[in-house]
Structure formats: C-alpha cells, structure tokens
C-alpha cells in the first residue's frame, strides 16, 4: 500500500466519490437535470420576432388604415361583436367610428393593448394625413446578456449548487447515522474531522465536473456570456458550494431518520427556491421583505453569479453577497460541529 492509499482522508474521500458515482439518481439530478432544465427554459423563452397584434374596427375604411401598420392585423366587425371579441381576448383593441371622431376600446392594464392603442392611433392619424414633426429612424439590436436565458442560467447554477451540496451531505450523513455506521466509524480511530472533510472534498471534486458541464453547455448552446474573470467565477462557485455544504451539515447534524431530514431540508430550501431569484428577479418582492430576501444565501449566490457572468463585476464589487455567503458558511459550520450527533 503506498502512502496515499494508506491515508484515511484519501480513503474516505474516494469512498464518498465512489458512492456518489454508484448512485444513478444522484448523478442524474446533479449533472443531467440542470441541463434539461436549461434546454427547456431556453426553448420556452427563446426570443421570437415581435408579435403582430390583433385589433378590430367598425368600418372597412378604418380596418384598411390599421392594416397599413406592419405591427397590426385588423378585422372589420360591428360594435357588439367587437365587444365580445375583446372580452374573449381574440382582439386587443376595437376602433369605433363615432360621428365626432374615433373611440378606442381596450384594457389599459394590458401592456400589449396599450401598445396596440399607440400603433392604431398612429396608423389612423397617418391615414388621415398627419405628418411627423421630427424625422425618426429605428436601429434594431438583439443583444446577448439581456435575454431571459442569460438571466436564468446563473440562477439555475446557484440552485444546482445549493441542491447538490445539501442533498449530497444530508442524505448520506443521516443514512449513516440511521444505519449505525456513524457510530461504527467513531468507534474506530478515524479522526472525526476527516469524515466531515471527506464530504467537502468530494463535493468540491464533483463541483468541477458539475459546473464545467453545465456552464459549458450554456455557453455553447445558448451563447450565455461570461463577462467576469473565470477564476473568480470558479471561486464564487466554490464559496457557494461550501456555504450550502455547511448548511447541509447543520440540517443533518441531529436528524435520526430520513423522513425528519427531508422535512427539514424542504423547510430550508423551499423559501430559497421561491424568494432567491432563480427564475425571476428577487427585487420583485415587496420592499418590506427585501432584507430577508437579501440575507438568504441563495440570493447572495445568485446575485454574485449574475454579477460576475452578466455584468462582469469583480470580486471587490461583489463584496456584499460574498460576505453573506461567508457568514452563512462560518455560522452553519460552527453550530453544526457543536451539535453534531455522532450516534
């Protein structure tokens, strides 16, 4: 046996690594699932050409004037039919010819309807002979980095880092406790810190594969931008994984059964799935709960990952989320090492 092989830390870490790879479900959830999710979201939210808006008009003359705008398709209908069509959403706006002029009927809380109102009015006024006071040209841009897929990829990365660290620690630890394996381990001369460290080490090894596969895919398939330094992005991933590993250790420090552990795990992760800005920006939540939302480790992780990838921010500029992650990691480690139940 050579020196490495006789090192208990090496043996423990390679045991963790082997056990992970021999668990097909774990491999799926860690490596394949985030890619499937990114593909699904990429398809659902791909940028389509600007929609053509459906509108109605009460006279053929009006319809013709409206149809002159490329952004509108117009149908002629009487007022009663038009009102019904509005109610069912098959048209966004109805232009009614009144003796004194034109009346637009539409729902002003619907953004598309408001757009239809602007386009329709411009088309009708132009047809009636209005001339622009100022000449205007359009220059169209479809920039990467501002698309939904660009927003969601760092969020998915954060979510995945959280999930794999938490599940990856909680389940094996609680299972080992339930099966009396933990007790057997501490009955041997194994240093306890090495047992816990082996979870962290194998997690970090897996992280390299996990992050590289996911971001590689996102970069190649969707052209998601990487504007910040890559090594800083790697550091942020490690920090995120360490913080959630600490949280996973905390969750698993007392639980004796799998049921108790999964309950606790959902309790911890569910608020973050909702509040931490994975699929939509966390700033949409009311100001009153913003301090809470900001303090969550996943919010900090997502902010930091987005800051690096989309805005090219440096670690210095990301000091706030980094500090939040560090604080979570330190606090969770300190508490769980104190209360960890070894039997």
């Amino acid at each position: 046996m050579n020196r490495l092989e006789s090192s208990s830390l090496f043996q423990l870490t390679s045991m963790r690594f082997r056990l992970f790879l021999r668990e097909p479900e774990a491999v799926f959830w860690t490596f394949i699932f985030p890619i499937l999710l990114a593909v699904g979201l990429g398809i659902a939210f791909r940028n389509r050409p600007a929609d053509v808006l459906q509108v109605g008009a009460t006279t053929a003359q009006l319809s013709q004037a409206l149809a002159a705008d490329k952004g509108l398709t117009a149908t002629t209908m009487d007022e009663a039919a038009g009102t019904r069509a509005l109610a069912t959403g098959s048209i966004l706006l109805l232009a009614i010819q009144r003796p004194e002029g034109i009346e637009y009927k539409f729902d002003d809380t619907n953004t598309d309807a408001r757009t239809a109102r602007l386009l329709a009015d411009r088309a009708i006024q132009t047809a009636a002979g209005r001339r622009e006071a100022v000449r205007a040209e359009n220059q169209l841009v479809h920039e990467t980095g501002a698309r939904y897929i660009d927003f969601v990829v760092p969020g998915l990365l954060g979510m995945n880092l959280m999930g794999s660290a938490m599940w990856g620690l909680v389940f094996p630890l609680v299972e080992a406790r339930q099966k009396k394996l933990l007790k057997r381990m501490v009955a041997s001369p194994m240093p306890r810190w090495q047992y816990l460290a082996s979870f962290l080490l194998s997690r970090l090894l897996l992280l390299v594969i996990e992050v590289a596969v996911f971001l590689g895919f996102a970069g190649l398939a969707f052209g998601v931008p990487f504007r910040g330094p890559l090594w800083e992005l790697a550091l942020l991933c490690v920090l995120t994984s360490v913080a959630f590993s600490a949280l996973g250790l905390l969750v698993s420090s007392r639980a004796r059964t799998m049921e108790a552990a999964s309950g606790l795990l959902n309790l911890v992760m569910l608020p973050m799935w909702i509040l931490s800005g994975i699929f939509f920006s966390a700033s949409r939540f009311p100001a009153a709960i913003q301090p809470l939302v900001r303090a969550l480790p996943l919010t900090a992780a997502n902010d930091a990952l987005r800051g690096n990838m989309l805005q090219g921010m440096s670690l210095g500029q990301l000091a706030a989320p980094v500090a939040i992650l560090l604080a979570w990691a330190a606090a969770a480690f300190a508490v769980s090492l104190r209360i960890f139940r070894w039997r």
Binding site: Q11, M15, L181, M190
Partner: peptide, 16 residues
C-alpha cells in the same frame, strides 16, 4: 454502505 465492495470497506477501515 451497500455500494462499496468488501475490499473497499476493509481498505477504508485499515487506513484508520
């Protein structure tokens, strides 16, 4: 652990 082999288990314990 169910998914380790006999030899791997013993090698692990031996390393302690």
């Amino acid at each position: 652990p169910d998914k380790l082999t006999v030899e791997e288990t013993l090698r692990l314990f031996r390393s302690f």
